[in-house]
Simulated assay, not measured.
Amino acid sequence: MLAIRSGTLCASVLVLALLGACDAPPPGMPAPEAAATNSPDCVTLAEGLYEFNDGQFLAVSAATLALSGASGWEGEMQTAFTGAGFPWMGLKVRDRVATLIGTAPSADAKAAALSVGEAAIAAHPEAGRAGLIVVDAISVEGGERGVGESLALLADTGASLESCQRAFTDTMAGRNVTFESGNARISPVSARLLDAVTGVATLCSQFVVEIGGHTDSRGADDYNLELSQARADAVRAYLVSKGVSEDALLSVGYGETAPLNPAPTPEAYDQNRRTEFKVIAR
Rank of each mutant, 00 (worst) to 15 (best):
E144C: 00
A159V: 04
T157W: 09
Q229P: 02
A159H: 01
G174I: 02
L132I: 07
C42I: 01
Y269S: 14
G253T: 03
A31M: 13
A123E: 11
H124E: 15
G72L: 15
V252A: 10
S187C: 11
E226A: 15
A220L: 13
T275F: 08
E47W: 06
C42P: 03
D170S: 15
G72K: 15
T178M: 13
A113Y: 02
P30W: 06
A111S: 13
N224K: 11
G255Q: 02
E246T: 11
G182K: 08
F81L: 07
D222N: 14
A234M: 06
A137Q: 06
K278G: 11
S61F: 05
V189A: 15
I121C: 13
A152R: 09
A62E: 11
Q271M: 08
G212Q: 12
H124V: 08
S190P: 08
E74W: 06
I4L: 06
P259Q: 02
V60Y: 05
E246Y: 09
V208T: 11
N38M: 05
G117P: 03
P25I: 00
A184H: 12
R166E: 15
V209D: 11
V43I: 13
C42W: 05
A112R: 08
R166C: 09
G182Y: 09
L58K: 11
A98Q: 08
I211K: 10
P25S: 07
I133N: 14
V93T: 12
G219C: 09
A24F: 07
A98L: 02
A152F: 05
G48H: 04
V60P: 04
L249N: 12
S115Q: 14
A122F: 11
E276P: 08
G255W: 00
L65K: 01
A34T: 07
K242M: 13
C204Q: 04
V15I: 07
T202N: 11
E267V: 01
K110M: 05
T8K: 03
E118I: 06
V140A: 01
R94Y: 10
I280N: 12
G142A: 05
E51W: 01
G243M: 12
T257S: 15
L161R: 10
L65T: 04
C164Q: 00
A35Y: 03
T99A: 14
Q271Y: 05
C204A: 02
A137F: 01
Q271N: 08
V189H: 10
A63D: 15
V209M: 11
E76R: 14
M77N: 12
N183K: 05
I138W: 09
F277N: 09
A31T: 14
G55H: 08
T44S: 15
E226D: 15
G219K: 10
G143P: 00
G131V: 05
L16P: 07
D233Y: 04
Q56M: 13
L239H: 10
D23V: 07
L161K: 09
G85A: 06
L239A: 06
A66I: 00
Q206M: 00
R218H: 12
A62I: 05
D170K: 12
G255H: 01
L250Y: 13
R5N: 00
S228E: 07
R185Q: 14
L153R: 14
V197T: 02
G7A: 02
R218S: 15
L154K: 00
A66K: 01
N272V: 00
K92M: 10
G174R: 04
A62T: 04
T79W: 03
K110I: 02
